[in-house]
Nucleic acid binder design. Structure first.
Lengths: 177, 177
DNA sequence: CCTCCACTGACACGAGTGTTTCAGTAGTGC
DNA sequence: GCACTACTGAAACACTCGTGTCAGTGGAGG
């Protein structure tokens, strides 16, 4: 259980990495930016790896919070896309992609399993949204895999080009079903 | 125009980053691994940034080579997916994703524009494969944006889970069109 | 032979890295 | 008052980083 000071600093550090990226974050600049010191960061999180792990967990919490109240039933895909496409979420999603890529390159360390976990999280939500008859069939699995691919591919495009209009138009046919 | 020694070392370095990732590559270990020295690397590529830029260009060359002889007409999407799903290409694609993510976080430096460029490359190929009647319509643009999203989202899934069977099955309906 | 040129080895420089050691300070419960 | 815990500051340690300096190689062309 984290102390009050710990969650406070974690929150500040989280805000920092959202704009600076996680890849080449280093303790001294981070500490200076959030009004702390490397000594305190190390004291509270044990090591840099501990800090990064905490930050990754923090980011994942944001993601899981979304998935929790996205609901089920028809229109999930559309609602998910609305959330992904919201400009306010772009830093989080960039961070998400960074962690995703990193966990593929370097399967050890604090990143471990991030990519796989996030695939499973989302597939599970899409599964819950399917009608009961399809949910446990091969067709159901194929369908939700497909929906996930579409959402994530669209997200990649959006993050690179920022062209929400073109991409949302491309998704429109799938969003209604 | 690069000297013989330069392309030779670039090729060796390319093989190295395919397995070690580009994110936290550093000159001394890289030089040691490919039987060279930091001195020579710096001499040939000017700086580390120059080396990274050359490596990125090298990776992009692989990608463009694919796009060049993927052909046009029906079945492009299926052929592209076959290529993406081939286990032999996984290191390249992981590297690709890494560069993609990085170029979003850090829009300056050698990564600049990588993500955007790659979106445009692929969209252009898909465009060339469309029948002439659709090619310049809004529907055509929407369709190829959608195809690209599907391919890239599926790739993300594949790189994380390795579950080629599930994902290829999910794509099957789109692959035939 | 001599010169030019592509390439290479050894080493040092200054800056930045995560982490540790030692010494505190503020606040709380007894 | 006193111990105890949570937290913090300053300085140092042992690296690694990219890069620069200086001095060579070896081979090809004149």
């Amino acid at each position: 259980m984290p102390s009050a000071r710990e969650t406070e600093l974690l929150e500040a550090a989280y805000r920092y990495v959202l704009t600076h990226g996680l890849a080449d974050v280093s303790l001294r600049p981070l500490a200076a930016a959030i009004g702390s010191s490397t000594r305190v960061l190390l004291y509270l999180f044990g090591s840099k790896e501990g800090l990064v792990k905490a930050l990754l967990a923090r980011a994942r919490a944001d993601e899981l919070a979304l998935l929790a109240d996205i609901g089920t039933g028809p229109g999930v895909v559309a609602r998910l896309w609305d959330w992904l496409a919201a400009p306010a979420h772009r830093p989080l999603l960039t961070l998400w992609l960074e962690a995703y890529a990193r966990s593929l390159v370097e399967p050890d360390g604090p990143w471990a399993g991030f990519a796989r976990a996030t695939v499973e999280d989302w597939l599970e939500v899409l599964r819950a949204a399917q009608p009961e008859g399809v949910r446990d069939t091969a067709a159901g699995l194929a369908l939700r895999t497909r929906e996930l691919a579409l959402l994530r591919g669209a997200l990649l495009d959006l993050l690179a080009t920022g062209d929400g209009e073109r991409i949302t138009a491309a998704l429109r046919t799938s969003l209604t079903t």
